[in-house]
């Protein structure tokens, strides 16, 4: 991917964490001695990584998106109800789910930018509205079923020359990640980070702050819809499919060294944070940490990782200064 010699600020710690976890996986589980094992891990992690990319856009521009978990649930439940097992409906339902994500992001963004409500509150309200509305519509429990065509994206694989069987979700993830990296290297992406760092300065230098923040929310909504399609295929229909995903995505992004409040961090690191989180869950499973204790261990490790990242700021500065001597900035 983009493991370039110059790393964005904050990328190093999460890569260390990720490598440690991957090595741990290789030692703990025989399945992880071959590439297939890691491909399976990547496939499992893809929805969370995509959510983390969306969340990254919002967080780096200084906001929060708490609605993505509810949006994923809504996407899956809506798709199941509308498709109801009919394969012919797959195409337009996928488009509809994407449009729905776009719409939710648009509403989040507009309320945040036009009505000036803090995004934490807007997306919290959206979470409540989505949770309520979806189940109001379906009468309390998800109904219908997804078509095999719809589920193909979440669990199917395609033959790629040279690589063999690669899951669809991994390909989608890689495409989105590549697009995100390119986007963040372009002018709009940099302006987005600048908004999170100093909104006033961007405004005074002629940047369209509101439009940028709106864009971040729309992207987050859209990517949440993509994640919903993948998760629906992977895990099937349930009312719990998106529960807690918003916190997981935010944790992943912060684990990637992205500053809550905006202005710092790279999208690759955020994605690596999501992969680390998923690797962590897998590792805990392999080590036989009981399901109940899992969240406790997870909590301790998250605190540890974030503390490590923020306490290591001084060290990291020295590191990035020596590695990013080139004129280019390092937010990619």
């Amino acid at each position: 991917m983009s493991f370039r010699p110059r790393l964005a600020e904050g990328t190093a710690p999460v890569l260390v964490v990720l490598v440690v976890l991957l090595v741990g996986l290789a030692i703990a589980g025989p399945a992880y001695s071959s590439p297939e094992g890691y491909l399976a891990l990547l496939k499992r992690a893809a929805p969370l990584m995509i959510l983390a990319i969306g969340q990254y856009f919002v967080i780096v521009s200084g906001g929060f998106d708490l609605s993505v978990g509810a949006l994923v649930t809504a996407g899956v439940v809506i798709a199941a109800r509308l498709i109801d097992g009919e394969d012919s409906a797959t195409a337009w339902v996928i488009l509809l789910v994407l449009a729905f994500g776009l719409l939710v992001g648009l509403v989040n963004g507009l309320v945040t930018t036009v009505l000036l409500v803090p995004s934490f509150i807007v997306t919290l309200g959206m979470l409540l509205v989505l949770d309520g509305a979806v189940f109001l519509w379906t009468g309390g429990a998800p109904r219908g079923a997804l078509s095999p065509g719809f589920r193909e994206f979440g669990r199917g694989a395609v033959d790629v020359p040279l690589l063999g069987e690669v899951p669809w979700s991994v390909l989608i993830l890689l495409a989105i990640l590549a697009a995100a990296v390119l986007f963040m290297r372009g002018g709009t992406g940099r302006a987005l980070v600048a908004v999170g760092d100093n909104e006033q300065a961007v405004r005074l230098s002629g940047g369209r702050v509101n439009r940028l923040r709106l864009l971040a929310f729309v992207l987050s909504g859209l990517l949440a819809a993509v994640a919903a399609i993948l998760l629906g295929g992977f895990a099937g229909v349930s009312a719990q499919v998106g529960a807690g995903l918003e916190f997981r995505a935010i944790t992943a992004v912060v684990l990637g060294g992205v500053l809550l409040g905006g202005g710092r961090g790279s999208v690759v690191a955020a994605t690596a944070g999501a992969l680390s989180l998923e690797a962590l869950f897998t590792l805990l499973n392999l080590l036989g940490v009981a399901g109940a204790l899992e969240s406790a261990v997870q909590g301790v490790i998250i605190i540890g990782a974030v503390a490590y990242a923020s306490l290591g700021v001084g060290l990291r500065h020295r590191f990035t200064r020596t590695t990013t001597k080139q004129p280019a900035t390092a937010s990619g």
Binding site: L293, S295, A296, V297, Q298, G299, V300, I302, I303, V306
Partner: peptide, 8 residues
Amino acid sequence: GVALVLRG
């Protein structure tokens, strides 16, 4: 994180 620990 503390919430997760308590939950566990």
